[in-house]
Design a protein around this nucleic acid. Structure first.
Lengths: 99, 99
DNA sequence: TTAAATATATAGGATGTCTTATATTTATGC
DNA sequence: GCATAAATATAAGACATCCTATATATTTAA
């Protein structure tokens, strides 16, 4: 996800995935579209799917294959993780968005 | 900066440094304290100083040594970078902080 | 002046996020 | 059926962010 400003803006992909899944069940392609709406660029398959695999192996999300797609939902651990991660995120960066 | 939740919460250190410097001139140690207030843990010297060196080499910040400390300020390029980076950050993650 | 504390700096290693490229599986259209 | 498209998956490599450990410079205290 190339970006033009001088400083590196990578990070928090897994957190963003968990946060999106905390709002609705989504498949990989739908996740990519939601991320593109926000970041301006769609994550490449080689970025997104390894992240989903990692979250799945950690037991934070669960994929359910239905035909061509795999729908992801948060596990109980995933729900706890996103709650804690969101609190950390707001505490770390909340003042950047404050008016 | 260890963190207990399941998903990785690294990232945006350089952006956070630029954003803090856009509010006031700070030395490395003062930056570390400001970051600790937000993230809960002080970045280790081996994390912070290489980041400052990198930003300096990119021409986004400028260090002025005065005695024991080095005070950092944004360059013109740095001010432009933080403005653009902030817009990107808000577009990418603003809805996570919305109430 | 010497010792300790503070601030800065560098080296080497681990990991997540990115890339490009390639492969596999399933659905769709002819 | 057969080719194409869509969705998922994996591999290899680059880089920022994190760590621990060590080193250097400057100030402060004894």
């Amino acid at each position: 996800m190339a970006h033009s400003c001088g400083c590196d803006m990578r990070g928090f992909l897994s957190f963003q995935i968990l946060w999106l899944l905390s709002k609705s069940e989504l498949c990989g392609e739908e996740l990519a579209v939601e991320i593109e709406k926000r970041r301006g660029e769609k994550p490449k398959p080689g970025t997104l799917y390894p992240a989903l695999k990692d979250l799945s192996e950690k037991g934070l999300v669960k994929g359910r294959k239905s035909g061509k797609t795999v729908s992801y939902v948060l596990t109980d651990d995933g729900m706890a993780a996103v709650k804690e991660a969101k609190a950390y995120f707001i505490r770390s960066f909340g003042d950047i968005l404050a008016r």
